[in-house]
């Protein structure tokens, strides 16, 4: 890989009581690279996502952002460091509008005394949200429509657009193509490719293996909390990938 390592975890572990969710996992992500993270249910994917996004602290191991060791106490710290995460099925507040969702937690205020009192620059955020989403290739009805009035595909597009437009370094997408039709999923994959061109490091978690094989540069396979294979996508076929996930195909070890 020509680009520098942007985000890295070394030997991270996480237990929930007696259950070992992550067992010494190590992972490197380069700028401008899309890494697929796959594994069966319970393999530790979502735990690793939570460690990477700052939602959970690991019991052991190190997290390095651009070579500097970091500790996340909450998701906000990771967000502020430039790491955006799109969680599975729960990225948006349905009662808020598109632009309110895009700017949630990062609102812009009006100028002057009203801004100091907490009044929001609604029009400005609507215009910027529209521009930002268009810039990442997301089209949507109107940025002042409540999300609850959008279709499932439109919601997912907004959620991804939000994450892509805010991400400065790392973008973590947990099952972004879930519940989407073929055409909408194709659009999501296009957005991922565009994010990669922007120089972001992207972690793509999915059960839909054709999508993983299409969009990633490298695939990391998790099984029972351990990373069992980490190899360039070109070294997998659909069959060997399934075999590696289920453990019926020989692994790296």
């Amino acid at each position: 890989m020509p680009n520098k390592v942007i985000y890295e975890v070394r030997n991270v572990s996480k237990n929930y009581g007696a259950v070992v969710a992550l067992d010494g996992a190590s992972l490197k992500l380069h700028a401008g690279e899309v890494v697929g993270l796959v594994g069966d249910n319970g393999a530790g994917k979502s735990t690793l996502v939570k460690v990477l996004s700052g939602a959970h602290s690991p019991d052991g191991g190190e997290i390095l952002l651009e070579g500097v060791e970091r500790t996340w106490h909450n998701p906000k710290q990771a967000l502020e460091a430039g790491i955006e995460t799109l969680y599975q099925d729960s990225g948006l507040a349905p009662h808020l509008t598109v632009s309110q969702n895009v700017f949630l937690g990062r609102e812009k205020f009006t100028k002057g005394i009203f801004g100091k009192l907490g009044f929001l620059a609604k029009k400005q955020m609507e215009a910027e949200a529209e521009a930002d989403l268009q810039a990442v290739g997301i089209a949507f009805p109107s940025s002042n429509r409540p999300v609850s009035q959008l279709s499932g595909g439109q919601r997912q597009a907004v959620a991804i657009g939000r994450a892509v437009s805010w991400a400065r370094k790392v973008l973590i997408l947990d099952e972004p193509t879930n519940h989407l039709g073929a055409r909408q999923a194709g659009e999501v994959l296009e957005v991922i490719k565009r994010a990669k061109k922007k120089g972001l490091g992207v972690i793509f978690i999915s059960h839909t293996l054709p999508h993983v094989l299409e969009v990633t540069d490298r695939i990391v396979v998790l099984r029972l909390g351990k990373i069992v294979r980490d190899a360039p996508t070109s070294e997998y076929t659909a069959d060997t990938l399934i075999g590696t996930i289920t453990g019926t195909y020989g692994s790296d070890e």
Partner: peptide
């Protein structure tokens, strides 16, 4: 509104 609409998304947004 955000908290009542989706507390998980609200927390994920750093609130």
């Amino acid at each position: 509104y955000a908290l009542g609409s989706n507390p998980f998304a609200t927390r994920a947004a750093g609130i």
